[in-house]
Every structure is written in structure tokens, then in C-alpha cells.
Simulated assay, not measured.
Amino acid sequence: MTDGHTAEIMIAEARKAFWVMVGFLGLIWVVQIVNWAGDYGLSYHYGIRAWDVDRLPGIVSAPLLHWSWAHIEGNSGPLFIFGFLAAYRGVRKFLGVTGLIALASGLGSWFTADSSAIGAGASGLVFGYFGYVLVRGAFDRHLIDIVIGLVMGLCFAYQFAGLLPAEGIGWQAHAFGFVGGIVGGYLFRDRRPAHAPKQAPKAATGDSRSALLKEIEDLGL
């Protein structure tokens, strides 16, 4: 596969990733309007309540729900940035990573959060994507992704404060989502054939030598 063809594939995937995140943000904002109109009844009824078996489906619905306009506004920017960076290498892989993060964040919160509280919000996904972007480059051995992970880690270092216990904040969803993102980086890493790197240098060397000899012959040397 040529570098040009690889670049075309990456651009196509990045374009799909952009529209996937635009669509996802559009969905949670539509849900927010309905939720706000109903005095946030959706968050109360479909959020996560720890150790309540009937509320286990909240693992799926809670990331779409928020408690206020400030809540959804605070999540939207990081969700789009980290979500796009998590998705631009492939939307199909991104969907698998998203499912793993939602499961880890939701179950972690369900097992460890205060049973008197109801958890809702996309911040578990935000921290999950953050963790995934940080480690993906190391697992995939892609230099550009390593650089992106380092830059994001430095620019958003303050996000790590959300992993610490704090009153009134669902830090459990943050922490378990972050762990889920790191695990996702390993489970969904690129798996290249072990023999491929060994064959490529020989072929490249042979082609280069043949091309050089032909140029010398053409020059009459």
C-alpha cells in the first residue's frame, strides 16, 4: 500500500470521525432539550443508581443525559476533541472502544458510587477517550499518535483532578472510564503480521539497487 493511498484512507476516516462526533453531540443536545423540558426527569429515571439492579440499563442511557446546561456545555468541548482523536484512526474501532469505556465507567460507578445519588453525564466517556488517546500511540507504535497523546496529556493535565474523590462529583465514572480507555488502547491495538517487517527491507533494497543500476546504464557509465 502506497503512502498516498494510506493518506487518503486516513483522511476519509478522519472525515467520518468528524461527522460521527457532530452527530453524537447533536444527539445529546437534542436529549438535553427534551430532558430540560421535562424538568430533568430523564436523568432521574434513566441515570445510574448504585446497586439498583433495575437501573443497570442506565449504563447505556446515562452518558446521553445531563443535569443542567452548564453540565452539558462543560462536557461537549472535551467530548468532541477526545472523541474525534479517538475515532480518526477508524470509526469501527472507535465504536468498540466506546462500548468498552461505557461499560467500564457505568459498571464501575454502579459498584462503587453512593447509592443515594444518581449518576448521569458524558464525562465518563470523556475520561475514557482521554485515556485511550494517551496510550494508543504506544500500543500501536505510531509516532504521530504518541505525539498527540503527549500533547493532549500536557494540555489537559488538569483533567486528572477529576479522577480523585470529590464531593458532589461522580469521580467513579471518571476513574473507571479512564481505566477503560487505557484497556481499550491495548485490546484494540493494531496487530501487524510478525513477518512483514522482515520482508520489506529486502524488497526495498533490491528495488533501489535495480533502479540505481538502470540509471547508470542509461547514462552510459
Rank of each mutant, 00 (worst) to 15 (best):
M1T: 11
G4E: 10
H5L: 09
H5P: 04
E8I: 05
I9S: 03
A12M: 00
A14E: 04
K16P: 01
A17I: 05
F18C: 13
W19S: 02
G23N: 01
V31H: 04
Q32R: 01
I33V: 13
N35Q: 01
N35H: 05
N35E: 09
W36K: 09
A37K: 00
G38F: 00
G38I: 00
Y44I: 10
Y46G: 02
I48W: 02
R49F: 04
W51M: 10
D52S: 08
V53T: 06
D54V: 04
R55M: 13
L56A: 04
G58L: 02
I59R: 00
V60W: 07
S61Q: 03
S61A: 11
W67K: 13
H71E: 10
G74F: 06
P78M: 08
L79A: 00
G83E: 05
A86F: 00
G90Q: 03
R92A: 06
R92L: 02
F94V: 12
L95W: 15
G96Y: 13
L100D: 01
I101C: 03
A102E: 14
S105E: 08
G106R: 04
G106Y: 04
T112G: 04
A113P: 03
D114K: 00
S115V: 09
S116W: 14
A117H: 05
A117N: 04
A120P: 02
A122F: 07
G124D: 02
F130A: 02
G131Q: 12
L134V: 15
L134W: 12
R136A: 08
F139G: 04
R141W: 07
H142F: 06
H142R: 15
L143M: 10
I146S: 09
I146P: 06
L150I: 15
L150P: 14
V151Q: 11
G153S: 12
G153E: 09
C155V: 13
Q159L: 14
Q159P: 04
Q159A: 11
F160A: 07
A161M: 09
G162W: 02
L163G: 08
L163H: 06
E167W: 07
I169M: 09
G170V: 07
Q172P: 07
Q172L: 00
Q172N: 01
H174C: 11
F176S: 10
G180T: 11
G181Q: 08
I182A: 11
R189M: 13
R191H: 01
R192Q: 14
A194V: 13
H195V: 14
A196N: 09
A196K: 13
A204M: 12
T205V: 06
T205F: 07
D207Q: 09
R209I: 12
R209Q: 08
A211I: 11
L212I: 14
L213A: 15
L213S: 13
K214V: 15
E215K: 15
E215S: 14
E217A: 12
L219T: 04
G220D: 03
L221R: 12
